[in-house]
Design a protein around this nucleic acid. Structure first.
Lengths: 358, 358
DNA sequence: CGCAAAATTTCAAACGTTTGCATTTTTGGG
DNA sequence: CCCAAAAATGCAAACGTTTGAAATTTTGCG
């Protein structure tokens, strides 16, 4: 099988014939021991030398590092991890409770993930991504945290797993969650004040002249529920109605549902608060197709301020979450927790970005 | 420090006082040995039992599994991996050659990543994500593959690292790359026939009445270069001009550059081929802002067929890459390579999705 | 030079599994 | 009941590093 070079485990080691390597590992310097033999020192010294430990003589250290480089030596992380009881890997779990598909390719998640990758890389950590289906695997959380494969965990979105996350938080310190904050909760969460965001959105719609509101989105996940609740606060105070229009996040159902809502509640609302920019964009399209002017007939406010938000026409008025800052905070808090600290949650303020749709 | 429960390594083990656990690990059953003691069998038997090995008596097996469950026992993957010389993890590397930022949050990458996560999960593999900056770290590829942390590698995008990838492919089998295919290349690649895609785009623009074309995008990365080349093929054959308008993928520079191109080449073209849907959407917006009708004055074709493509108005005519199929193929080929097979590259046909902009 | 202190290196025991082989127990046919 | 074969279990050596502690070498000062 030419071209195939297995990382060959070597066979039973017969008493070595001097400095010559066994036939199995043709000259390859695979282990720290190989390197030690080559350098004429012990494995321990090589280990320390590669780690830059000043315990070993500067000259020796340099020589060994040089040798390692020239032989393309790679430290076996697995072994190193086992011995040191840490991995340099942070797990990122995305629980897919309701909306199985799409959630991960939703602009928001992806943007957050990108920023997380940046932040973690910068601090020398790798990122292990795992999508979990809680209904298939009850034990997803302790499974991930207890696997020994990750030093800590970032959970993106609470989905419908609030309770399980709470339980895990009691005995697993290095975990930080992106999501909604609830009075007195145990787990450390980073997120936007969704309720306040909902208020801002509703206020804006009303200020723009809306008198009958509609909320487009799935009010099941906590974050969305809070947004909805915020809007309800304001609607109640202002004495305007608000209609819940369940809308999923996957593309096809979403367009179908939006069309349905627009059709069956034709005159039912003149202001839409979309749970997500993704939904808002779809609404904009549907409204245009239905010949309803935005913001003339219907006002529209989104949530997130994803890149697309500024690319529609008219550009989307929306509630901004600072995703980059969120990612930074998640990683920062996790690092502190890895250091044994018991950190508080961080709730960031949302900000209204007034553009063309309301 | 209440609430903090380290995975406590236990102290020096004094001769055990019977079945009672040492004070250090308060009742926790952490290792397979703990479990073995509890079950009154040897560690080996426990290991086999947990693995479902039929060598151990069915009754014993069930009993041990039950015990493991009830004590929330988690196998230490690190140790298991070390011993078995495999990890169950596939590395996904995203080299960021040119366009450092945004690339990862670009809709295309993210969608691909989402599908990869799905496919890998389904086959019982985890996904380790690593963004690499080749200019900072010459050795990124062998570093990743040789770390012992991953069983195989998927590289997303060749960036400007074609040569390095070629070199790695010579000695590292389990690697598959998303990108462009070049005659006689060594590494196994999955991707779309970008050149053909470019042709389809240009043909469509011309069929829609365009007489002077423009290409918006960075022609540096191979994939984009091929798209451009394809468009050039057709333009030359049809005797129409084609203007290269360098455009980056990051949001702010992108909008700036597009505005600039539209302004300084006001009458220079009446058909735009955008290297990416993301760019196309921005173009659409800019054209509208400039008061130029699409497809009346200017025809527009994108590339990728991202979800947004159908959400603009008019909806985007674009060249579709089947991202889900791509992800499936990447994983499939990688699995075959993990099995020792030496697989061929896969070049998928692009497809024109005719919508409203050309 | 001699000798203690400092600097450097080696030794060997972990880290928690897996697995070939040896050993013990069970089974079943005579 | 006996004894070989089959089934089940135990033993111990890996996997490749890291790291106290012990052992060795070098240094520096009188």
């Amino acid at each position: 099988m030419p071209g195939i070079v297995p990382r060959g485990r070597r066979g039973p080691e017969v008493a070595g014939t001097g400095e010559d390597d066994s036939v199995w590992a043709e000259g390859q310097v695979r282990t720290i021991t190989d390197l030690a033999r080559l350098a004429g020192v012990s494995a321990g010294t090589v280990s320390r030398a590669l780690a830059g430990n000043t315990l070993v003589n500067a000259r020796t250290r340099e020589r060994i590092q040089q040798l390692a480089r020239s032989h393309g030596f790679q430290l076996n992380q697995m072994a190193s991890n086992l011995r040191r009881q840490k991995t340099g890997v942070v797990g990122v779990a995305i629980p897919l409770g309701h909306d199985r598909r799409q959630q991960i390719s939703d602009g928001f998640f992806m943007t957050l993930l990108g920023h997380l990758a940046d932040e973690l890389t910068q601090r020398g950590y790798d990122l292990m991504l795992r999508r979990v289906l809680p209904e298939r695997d009850e034990d997803w959380l302790s499974r991930f945290s207890g696997s020994g494969m990750v030093d800590g965990l970032i959970v993106i979105g609470q989905s419908d797993q609030f309770e399980r996350i709470e339980a895990a938080a009691a005995e697993y310190l290095p975990m930080v969650v992106w999501g909604n904050h609830q009075e007195g909760q145990r787990h450390c969460v980073v997120g936007t004040d969704n309720r306040l965001g909902g208020r801002l959105a509703a206020e804006r719609l009303i200020a723009a002249g809306a008198t009958r509101l509609a909320f487009f989105g799935d009010a099941e996940p906590m974050e969305f529920a809070a947004r909805f609740a915020g809007a309800c606060d304001v609607a109640a105070r202002a004495g305007v109605s608000i209609l819940a229009c369940p809308t999923s996040l996957s593309v096809e159902p979403m367009t179908r549902e939006i069309a349905h809502h627009l059709h069956s509640n034709a005159g039912g609302f003149d202001g839409i608060f979309a749970a997500t920019d993704t939904i808002a964009v779809a609404c904009l399209k549907a409204l245009r197709d239905a010949g309803r002017a935005v913001p003339g007939h219907v006002r529209l406010v989104g949530f997130d301020d994803l890149p697309i938000a500024s690319q529609t026409s008219p550009p989307l008025t929306t509630i901004r979450q600072d995703i980059a800052a969120g990612a930074r905070a998640l990683v920062d808090l996790l690092m502190r927790r890895l250091g044994g600290e018991n950190t508080e949650s961080l709730v960031m303020p949302p900000r209204l970005i007034a553009r063309g749709t309301a």
